[in-house]
């Protein structure tokens, strides 16, 4: 099987046919076809650096103290 596969791919390429997808269907998946598991859910953490808007005035004004 291991010897046959490259010869078969070369034979198909010779006739202009691309090699078949090594993982055409989940039933053929083996260790080499597995994808890395999705990262843990990071969306639950508060994203730092996102401007926080407590204002409810509906106007982009803001309270600031400019003491003499």
């Amino acid at each position: 099987m291991t010897l046959f596969a490259p010869i078969f791919a070369w034979w198909l390429a010779l006739f202009g046919v691309s090699a078949p997808d090594p993982c055409p269907h989940p039933v053929f998946l083996d260790a080499t076809c597995e994808q890395a598991p999705p990262p843990p859910n990071q969306g639950a953490e508060r994203s730092k650096g996102t401007p926080h808007t407590f204002k409810t005035r509906g106007r982009p004004t803001t309270q600031i103290s400019n003491g003499f």
Partner: peptide, 20 residues
């Protein structure tokens, strides 16, 4: 809106040198 802006602009004097 001007009144709202003015209200949001604070000008305290507590920290100033007592002479002024």
């Amino acid at each position: 809106l001007q009144a709202v802006d003015q209200e949001a602009y604070l000008t305290p004097v507590e920290q100033v040198d007592g002479r002024f």
